[in-house]
Nucleic acid binder design. Structure first.
Lengths: 336, 336
DNA sequence: AACGGGTTTGAAAAGCTTTTCAGGGTCATT
DNA sequence: AATGACCCTGAAAAGCTTTTCAAACCCGTT
């Protein structure tokens, strides 16, 4: 059996109160006893029971992270930032892979609530009404990541997706491209769907290329979906010379499809991705893409959550971290 | 404040014992009261406090997963299997990213112990003495994944790394290659280092190619390391026409290096990887590699841990799941 | 020597649930 | 009508820690 504070007390020949004090306010007990107690703790390898503590302090030093898909490198990077920041402050993180399944999300929230998690970080899924209500009812502090949902006034950390998308497309335009397509996330379903599409349109409008605004196909989330979407896009608008992909994985899908159909990148087709996942550097050709400070986003999310837990409120509600266009090898000037 | 069982009891006009019974053995309370209690529970959205329960049942329905690097797609896949299996049985998983840092691992184990985790899944890191002792002392059930450490008699789930490596190299030999190199994990540091190297050597010996046994370079873990290692390998043995890489990420590193130095894959160099991470299908060229049933490994690990928690022992100590060579585009017959 | 102040200590309560135990009630049987 | 058997219910204990409160002690002062 695990030793309890009683065992320590007995071994040291003091009361349990004294043992407790040695751990929480050592200066209030005389050095001699303090020493004895500390030795007993060491000898028994005593560690206070988190359940009993939780009962008193009403917190578990644990929070949950809900993400759609751990295998997606973007979330993996996020998770890493989150985990590091959490470990830094001695908190544990419980991971909840939602697969974008609503009932699963709901179940996770209830479970986290029951397990007395101190808070929730909610990443990238669309926050539907029912879930939002459950979250509110549970009174669990939560912050949104890569999920700006202005209709709910929940704290969030993100980049400026519209602006970033706009810059990516501008890059293509500056290279001389005039027939540009996009592979986007489905707008209703995924949060970054709408703003990235808006950024695409804005860049087009600025350059007077509105005729391209309909050169858009949507893909669920994975590489394979993007390949198919690329196929549809090339049927719909065979003349395009450049594609803005809403994620690096999509960009790879487009490039793979293009290669399989005899169009080489970047010579005959320029492709710009989004996220700068680690793979973007490893892919051939190396991907031109928009870098998100994904690790930092994770760290900030934890700090924000912590702020929320401690103060009950947060100084800046919606936080936006800087992004950056990184030009590598998958885009090139238009050859006429 | 969160409602407690007391609030429910008061609202329903019964004692707390009755409320508890309604939740844990409903048939022992008369239907009329049962109904009233259930209504009260609904109304207050009462959920029993996990701390109090934990104090009684002495378990948290939570376990920890220690992995070296979430961003490594191999571990992400593993984690997904683990998480799904855990959710299936209503358990939570706490994630611990070790970065292969010994003191961090030790700290995680202590933390998990203190938080009353029910068990630990330990993946891929080398299990050094100190950690093993801590684990044993903590009495926490644990299972090893991709970490066969025969010197400790701990339950494990893995594939047959040596055999798999051997088959990968045989594939190269069957394609006609006679000058074969390898990029491996450092042997002491990483667990899959030694067996994969042994498999490489065995295949060479079988084919009478022992002169290749020294065509080996080691890389830490990442793509960039593999690029450098590839550079060293080509200096050491410029004549090689094929490379066995101990991971898909290494394979990509080799291919990237080769391409940057004017050797195209697979025409002038065949490369076989290991793991079949999702990216292996997306890379150009698509990677020939050894598939590990990574999701299944995660699932089995959870089941094994559960078995261990419930029975205190496990029916088969070391479990080996099947692997499979997948031939794609990064290997080709030798042109003379 | 007695008193007062401060320090140190232990007993007990609180936090929330489950479970044991005993008491109260109901019904049937004699 | 009394007894017994059985069902249902509530009080209380247990699980482990922290914290409050009061008692005990020490020292110095008058």
């Amino acid at each position: 059996m695990k030793p309890t504070i009683r065992d320590v007390a007995k071994l040291a020949g003091v009361s349990i109160s004294t043992v407790s004090r040695v751990m929480n306010a050592p200066e209030t007990v005389v050095p001699e006893k303090r020493q004895r107690v500390q030795e007993a703790i060491e000898r028994l390898r005593y560690k206070p029971n988190a359940f009993a503590r939780g009962l008193i302090y009403k917190k578990s030093d644990t929070f949950g992270v809900m993400i759609p898909d751990i295998e997606n490198p973007y979330y993996a990077g996020l998770l890493r930032g989150i985990q590091d920041a959490a470990a830094e402050m001695n908190h544990s993180v419980i991971i909840c892979n939602t697969d974008r399944d609503r009932s699963r999300m709901l179940a996770y929230v209830r479970n986290l609530f029951e397990k007395q998690a101190d808070g929730i970080i909610f990443a990238s899924d669309s926050l539907h009404r029912e879930l939002y209500d459950e979250l509110k009812r549970s009174r669990l502090p939560f912050v949104l990541v890569s999920t700006d949902a202005p209709e709910y006034d929940a704290p969030s950390v993100d980049i400026d997706n519209e602006q970033a998308a706009c810059e990516a497309v501008r890059h293509l335009i500056e290279l001389g491209h005039r027939e540009i397509g996009m592979i986007g996330f489905p707008v209703g379903n995924t949060i970054s769907g709408a703003p990235r599409l808006a950024g695409f349109r804005r860049a087009l409008a600025e350059a007077g290329l509105d005729h391209c605004a309909s050169h858009v196909e949507f893909a669920a989330h994975r590489f394979e979906d993007a390949c198919e979407a690329a196929g549809r896009l090339f049927v719909r608008a065979p003349q395009i010379t450049a594609v803005f992909a809403a994620s690096d994985e999509f960009a790879m899908g487009v490039i793979a499809y293009a290669r399989d159909h005899g169009r080489s990148v970047p010579d005959q087709l320029s492709v710009v991705g989004f996220d700068d996942i680690r793979m973007a550097r490893m892919f051939i050709p190396r991907l031109t893409t928009v870098e998100q400070p994904v690790y930092q986003i994770g760290v900030r999310a934890v700090h924000k959550l912590h702020e929320l837990m401690v103060n009950g409120e947060v100084s800046v509600l919606h936080e936006r971290l800087p992004h950056r266009l990184i030009v590598r090898e998958s885009t090139a000037g238009l050859r006429v």
